[in-house]
């Protein structure tokens, strides 16, 4: 006993423990700094977009982002157009926002049906063996580069579509929606599966024990219970659809028109940035307008993400109780 006490009291032990303590603290700060870098990067992106995007408001009035007033034959008219390079540039974001919605809403609807089906199949119906086989396949689907899907829509599917639907434009909003749904289905399906797996087993057992059929258990018990998870997955999928660039750039036809027709060309906010930023001169009104679109996109996806996260957090708390 005395020996141990001696050892603990010895100056060597003390100095060593101090040294390790210091080392431990330095290591902890090192890791903290690295995670701080992540926050800094994110803030930097936001601040930078804000700074460059708001410069657009110095050159272009906020009203001009909605419509441009023109006088023709003595009559006042409003033009909702995106023609940033013409002599009288028009910067209305309305056709672009409309284009984004016209493509991403159908895409989200299609993906919801298919994505939730896949999620239900994987978590409730498929045997373990089938699941182990199907899950990697769905994951591979999620990993296909968007440029490949865009190319496939542009070259192969567009021709098939032309024969079936006889669209106004060969490349149109609906084609882009179908292309988009390929990348959103895996997102929705994997989140749906998670949401179903989070439902406690007892609830399922209780439902079956009361004599409910599989249909009743899935649609009357599991889906209502997992509803928050499902809605979060749909919101996240929608956010991804709004932000996706390559597929819409290649398959939507890129005509900024004010139309609600699915079989006409449409132009999204993302495709506008992608197509025009390469040719724009720095510090021009057009350049800042593109950053403004970027800011709008950033804010939209940020809000959608936050909403989805709030819903998921509430779900987790509910299930924990």
């Amino acid at each position: 006993m005395e020996r141990v006490n001696d050892l603990n009291k010895s100056p060597y032990a003390k100095s060593k423990s101090k040294k390790t303590l210091l080392k431990e603290r330095i290591i902890k700060y090192f890791f903290t700094i690295n995670s701080l870098v992540v926050i800094i990067i994110f803030t930097l992106i936001f601040v930078f977009l804000l700074q460059e995007g708001l410069k657009a408001l110095d050159v272009i009035a906020i009203k001009d982002f909605v419509y441009k007033t023109v006088f023709e034959n003595g009559e006042e008219g409003k033009l909702y157009q995106w023609y940033p390079t013409s002599e009288q540039p028009r910067f209305s974001l309305i056709p672009l926002i409309l284009g984004s919605l016209l493509i991403s809403i159908p895409a989200t609807l299609i993906s919801t049906v298919f994505g939730i089906s896949v999620g239900i199949y994987l978590s409730e119906i498929a045997s373990i063996k089938t699941r182990e086989f199907l899950k990697p396949i769905i994951e591979i689907f999620a990993g296909i580069p968007t440029v490949v899907l865009g190319f496939f829509m542009l070259v192969v599917v567009a021709s098939i579509f032309q024969d079936i639907f006889n669209p106004v434009n060969r490349l149109n909003a609906f084609l882009a929606s179908i292309g988009l749904s390929f990348i959103i289905i895996p997102i929705i399906s994997s989140l749906t599966e998670d949401a179903f797996n989070a439902v406690p087993k007892e609830i399922r057992m209780a439902s079956y024990a009361l004599g409910a059929s599989k249909f009743q258990t899935v649609f009357r018990v599991l889906i209502p219970t997992a509803m928050s998870g499902l809605s979060a997955s749909i919101i996240l999928g929608f956010g991804r659809a709004i932000g996706e660039t390559m597929i819409v750039l290649m398959a939507s036809g890129n005509a900024a028109e004010l139309s609600f027709e699915l079989f006409r060309s449409a132009r999204t906010m993302t495709a506008t940035i992608a197509a025009e930023l390469g040719e724009v001169s720095q510090d021009s009104a057009h350049y800042f307008a593109l950053f403004f679109i970027g800011l709008v996109l950033f804010v939209i996806t940020f809000i959608l993400n936050m909403v989805a996260e709030l819903i998921l957090n509430r779900m987790r708390n509910k299930i924990n109780y």
Binding site: I273, A274, G294, F302
Partner: peptide, 11 residues
């Protein structure tokens, strides 16, 4: 993770 990839290009 949710920021659109084109926004990273702008940045």
């Amino acid at each position: 993770a949710g920021v659109p990839s084109i926004v990273f290009g702008l940045f």
